[in-house]
Nucleic acid binder design. Structure first.
Lengths: 118, 118
DNA sequence: ACATCCATTAGCAATTCGGCTAATCGAGCG
DNA sequence: CGCTCGATTAGCCGAATTGCTAATGGATGT
């Protein structure tokens, strides 16, 4: 898994990783992803907000973070907005990162694109 | 992958997930994991700190977050401290979460343990 | 046109985060 | 013993995050 599509530039990949993992850092946002997935992958803002204890505006902001990370897509439909999960993206970004650790490191340290130091 | 060991309680699993994803939310911490993995899985605090642009104390704190999340273990050796990556844990927690999205959701929404709402 | 409904945007307070420098601690060496 | 070296702890500060309520925006229905 996680070996698909056009090659993103290293910088782009880094930025995507940052956005995705930042988005995954909050329990409510992880939960939104799960709800979206297990509820057929498509829900309106109101349906999502109804499932959470926090206020609707707060949920709206969480959704915004997920959208900006590319994990979720919005489609305006009449006066409601439909949010849809992008499973591929989740796997492409988070999955690819985790995949580095799956296998033992090659003797020649051919590291992936990291971010600081040598 | 990601189906191993004694069953953690739901609450425990939630807390672990929170700690792990919070730890993964910062680029420097993700980078520490990568360095650890691609450098034989075992480095001293000084060796790690040397690879980063931020100050040593700051790196120490990042390492603390990783340790508390269980992603890294420390062993005191003389006056140095050796940090070692726990790949299994990374996969057990983050991998298991991502695995929920790998397959299409079953018609009967048998959701995993989330955190809020209905 | 007007009222209503779905949803976002604005703006604020409280908290957490991430960086730094200075101080401290403990092990090893001369 | 005293000094140095590896590393963490303490404390400060600015920036980002997350929560809320109130205000606004835009589509629908009467």
């Amino acid at each position: 898994m996680a070996e698909r599509g056009p090659p993103r530039s290293a910088a782009r990949e880094l930025a995507d990783r940052e956005a995705v993992f930042k988005a995954l850092a909050h329990a409510s946002r992880r939960h939104v992803l799960l709800v979206l997935h297990f509820r057929g992958g498509e829900l309106t803002a109101g349906e999502i907000a109804a499932r959470f204890s926090c206020s609707w505006p707060t949920t709206t902001r969480h959704l915004g973070v997920l959208v900006r990370a590319g994990l979720v897509r919005v489609e305006a439909r009449g006066r409601e907005r439909v949010y849809r999960l992008d499973r591929e993206r989740l796997d492409a970004v988070a999955g690819t990162f985790l995949a580095w650790f799956r296998a033992p490191p090659p003797p020649t340290g051919d590291a992936p694109t990291g971010d600081a130091g040598s």
